[in-house]
Amino acid sequence: MTPLAQRAWFWPVVAPIGVGVLLLVGWQAMCDYFEIPPYLFPSPKAIVTAFLDDYPTLLHALWSTLKITFQAFALAVVLGSLTAFIFVQSRVIELSLLPYAVLLQVTPIVAVAPLLIILVKNTPVALTLCATVVAIFPIISNTTIGLRTIDPGLLSYFRMNKVGRAETLIRLRIPSALPFFMAGMRISSGLALIGAVVAEFVAGTGGRSAGLAYEILQSGFQLDIPRMFAALFLITLTGVVLFAAMIGLQQMLLGHWHESALKGET
């Protein structure tokens, strides 16, 4: 059996965890030593206590935010891919629509969100739309590039065999685009979460559909800083899990053939 420290996964897992533990211990020690009051900068212990005191509300808020994030992400993936498919059908379509996609991308969502929330009565729908607007652009641009980046030799091989448009799309264009699409997914998943939180901040909705942003705002008003940190950590954790899931998906789909996902090998 290989010693634990020599396994491939050992250092990539243990080293960051070690740093994390060191940081937490140091943080706690600083707070204890300088007796920093929790409303200025809470210690890890205070944050954990705050979370345990109020975890049903916080987890419910997390669930609300997650719902918005996933809906927005799914919508961005579907609409973004469809838009990319339409773009590659003809240059004219792409040239006439791309500026608007860019417009959508460059307008800060914080500025658009209030308008959307006024226009759309149903708040969760408005929040989902905001997050979708943020998340969709990387999918559109990456998938468009991917669908166009095709080995010209393979394309002439398909043409020579008189292969139709639909079959070429399925057998050639989609697999060629997959690495680009995955890169887009990875960026987009993070943006969906950011979009959801920003939209929640702007909407400031409480009650049943209160998200983590609302809990952060509330905690701020009440100077319950440890609770604010607890909510913040939940958001961070969600982002990390989303990112890891995307890496896993990419590994599953591309691991065996594409350079972007290959592990070091001889």
Binding site: L154, Y157, M160, N161, E167, R171, L172, P175, W257
Partner: peptide, 25 residues
């Protein structure tokens, strides 16, 4: 049948599936 200067294979497909492509057509 035409053989190009380059192998022009589909990198995402195994050898057998690459060879089978014209039969799929």
């Amino acid at each position: 049948a035409f053989v190009f200067q380059e192998p022009t294979l589909m990198p995402w497909a195994r050898v057998a599936r690459n060879v089978r492509l014209p039969l799929d057509f």
